[in-house]
């Protein structure tokens, strides 16, 4: 017993492999090089500051003309409609894709990745690019916006619905299978109920996200309040622009507040 020797503690950097070290140094080099290339120089910041102040002063006071406010109100409603209907269609589309691509749930076995790939594609193409595509394909206006939100929602919900289904409890699934339930019966009876809180939370996030992106879709002509914002900036009507920005702020904040409350009520 007296001879027991305690080994020395492992070296401080024992966990860091040479490869990780090289990667770390490379990342640091990349950050430093990029800083020089694209970050604002002190000189430009100094010049930009007063200009920014001048722009803000031209934005004030916001234009509160009742006729203008009414028009903005209508545009806000249209924006919310785009977000709501786009999310609805996106959610409807997401379910079959999630079912087809969820590991352990999919009836397509090794071909599930095809559906996963479609969802990934919908997600990786940015919303403004989708909007450009749909504006070219079906013309200016709110319908292009709705289609854009739909693709955006498919990319988002399709992925997280699938993950929720994959995480659904194993035991009830196996039990229902043993009872002779069909694949679809297992899905509806055991998988979806267990995944439901996660699905609802995802849907609320999607709605919130849809409101935020539907606001900017108008910049490329896909309907909604963004169109007014672009016009205001193009015509140097900065008081109008500030009103619109405030309106957007209120809508997005309101949406976040509402979805937050709903999420908190989930059990």
């Amino acid at each position: 017993m007296a001879e027991r020797r305690i080994p020395a503690p492992p070296g401080r950097f024992a966990g860091l492999s040479p490869l990780s070290f090289v990667l770390l140094v490379a990342a640091a080099a990349l950050v430093i090089a990029s800083l020089g290339d694209v970050s604002p120089s002190p000189q430009r910041l100094a010049e930009g500051g007063p200009r920014m102040a001048r722009l803000v002063s031209r934005m004030l006071p916001p234009d509160l003309d009742p006729a203008f406010l009414a028009r903005i109100g209508l545009r806000i409603v249209e924006t919310l409609q785009i977000a709501l209907i786009g999310t609805l269609f996106g959610v409807i589309l997401s379910f079959p894709f999630a079912y087809a691509s969820a590991r352990g749930v999919t009836p397509f076995g090794p071909f599930a990745f095809l559906f996963k790939a479609v969802v990934s594609f919908a997600r990786t193409v940015p919303d403004l690019v989708w909007a450009l595509i749909f504006v070219s394909a079906i013309g200016l206006g709110a319908v292009a916006g709705t289609m854009t939100i739909m693709m955006d929602t498919l990319g988002f919900c399709g992925r997280f619905y699938a993950e929720a289904m994959e995480d659904a409890e194993e035991e009830p699934r196996e039990a229902l299978t043993a009872f002779g339930a069909s694949r679809f019966g297992v899905l509806m009876g055991a998988v979806i109920p267990d995944a439901m809180p996660s699905i609802i939370a995802t849907t609320l996030f999607a709605l919130e996200k849809a409101v935020r992106s539907s606001v900017v879709l108008g910049l490329v002509g896909a309907g909604g309040i963004g169109q007014e914002l672009k016009t205001a900036f193009d015509l140097f009507q900065y008081e109008k622009a500030s009103t619109i920005i405030l309106a957007i702020f209120i809508v997005v904040l309101g949406m976040e507040w509402a979805t937050d409350r709903m999420r908190r009520r989930l059990r």
Binding site: A175, A181, G189, D194, P197
Partner: peptide, 26 residues
């Protein structure tokens, strides 16, 4: 191995999922 978020009655009905027309036993 019950489905936790469903009612007790729904869970018992799951025992009938082998029957023809079982989509109504979800």
């Amino acid at each position: 191995a019950l489905v936790k978020r469903r009612t007790v009655l729904s869970n018992v009905l799951h025992g009938l999922l082998h029957r023809p027309g079982a989509w109504r036993a979800w």
